[in-house]
Amino acid sequence: MLMHLLTLTVVMAALIGAVLAATHHPAVPIPPDNPQTPAKIELGRKLFFDQRLSADLTISCASCHKPEFAFSDGGNAVSTGVGGRRGTRNTPTLTNVGFRQGLFWEGRSTRLELQAVGPLTARIEMDMQPEVLAQRLEAIPEYARAFREVFGEAPTLKTTTFALAAFQRTLLSYNSPFDRFQAGDDLAMSEAALRGMEVFFAESGDCFHCHVGSEFTDDVPRNNALYTVYQDLGLALATGLDEDVGKFKTPTLRNIELTAPYMHDGSIKTLREVVEHYNRGGEPNLNSDVLMRPLGLSEQQIDDLVEFLKSLTDRSFTTNPAFQPPR
């Protein structure tokens, strides 16, 4: 009887925590010129999973942003676009992407509607021309009808990106063990994860200065001393400034367990290796962020930090039917 009561208590705590976690997150900012509607979100979901949005009908947004990997590319260091063309950067997660203040690894794109133009038209990704996309969608009665219902006009590249943005703003993940712990479920996280949390939010680990707040990112491009010489210049590609060489946007850590490999180029395979990189202080680099330095963490602390990072995994996010391909 006691065991049953204990089990019931744990289950209730988990449920309450889940509910609290699910209801205590900030509202996604919605741009006034692209209000959310159920029809638009559903259209965006269909488009997101539709390979017909690529030049050779082989690549959808979901080809690289796979739901089961928190909308990242499932173990691939870089992604492959139409015709087998390989990119140069790791596909970022779309977890809570509606909150991101800067998109792409440089963080230079200001809104999801504009960001989507990139993969849709890039030669190494989906390689679509605006007029081809519009004609192709118009020729599909389901889309021709849906675009008119949602936007009052025929499909265009612009309205396609607006629908995709609407869907992406629904991709919310706030039901990890960490969230449930935050919501009052004392049993949500393991002992190791709790110890790791202490390191994460202390100066000893110093993770929280960049991976800040409930989104675990400051959305700022930084040089994390991954290399001494960067093949990919990062932010400097856009600004041309020497001091921006090697700067890439701080990624969110939510669902980080599911989004391996890591870094802008997918060059680090495991979470433990990532933590070890930071523990070493990175490679010598003139632009290295001021916070990069040897941390002196013990093996136990590294293990604990990894466990904490795993506590940011939200399986309800990756299995949410609303985020899966439409039937």
């Binding site: 792409f104 230079r108 504009l114 038209t121 021309q129 605006p130 519009a134 590249l157 990106t161």
Partner: peptide, 13 residues
Amino acid sequence: LGINSGMFWAWNP
């Protein structure tokens, strides 16, 4: 101009 021009550079405004 605009998105439909096919000339907007998404990654670098």
